[in-house]
């Protein structure tokens, strides 16, 4: 069975979620839990780092859809970063770049949060 795990790092108020392995129908609940826990703690500024993710299926993409409204309603966002070409291709095929900000590096994505904060202030 393909393995999947997540880990979280706090980068100055932004929560960086690292995905590792295969995100598919079987492992989707793991990510679901991770997001649920963050939302429970009112942590709405999230960057997902895809550096170590080797595969994502549409069930995996569904998890992003399931939480995005709630997070944006709380003036947060899920920003995506560091995707391999293969993973990006799937996001691209299904039209995600229209709805999600996708950055080359985690740093860029994290900084976007502070930039928007500055603008708001």
């Amino acid at each position: 069975m393909a393995e999947f795990s997540t880990s979280i790092k706090d980068a100055g108020g932004v929560n960086v979620v690292y995905l590792k392995g295969y995100l598919d129908a079987h492992t989707a609940p793991v990510l679901e839990n991770t997001f649920s826990n963050l939302i429970e703690k009112s942590k709405y500024s999230i960057v997902v780092n895809f550096k170590d993710l080797s595969y994502i299926s549409s069930a995996g993409l569904g998890v992003f859809m399931a939480f995005i409204e709630k997070i944006r309603d709380n003036s947060g966002d899920i920003k995506l970063s560091s995707m391999s070409d293969k993973v990006f291709n799937i996001f691209d095929l299904l039209g995600f770049p229209l709805l999600y900000e996708i950055y080359k590096s985690e740093e860029e994505a994290v900084n976007k949060f502070s930039e928007t904060k500055k603008l708001e202030n």
Binding site: A25, L61, G62, E69, G95
Partner: peptide, 18 residues
């Protein structure tokens, strides 16, 4: 409940539905 969850995730991920 898990079957339905997977069904839902696949569909909303595939078609960008909330």
């Amino acid at each position: 409940s898990r079957v339905v969850k997977l069904l839902v995730y696949s569909v909303i991920g595939q078609f960008l539905v909330s």
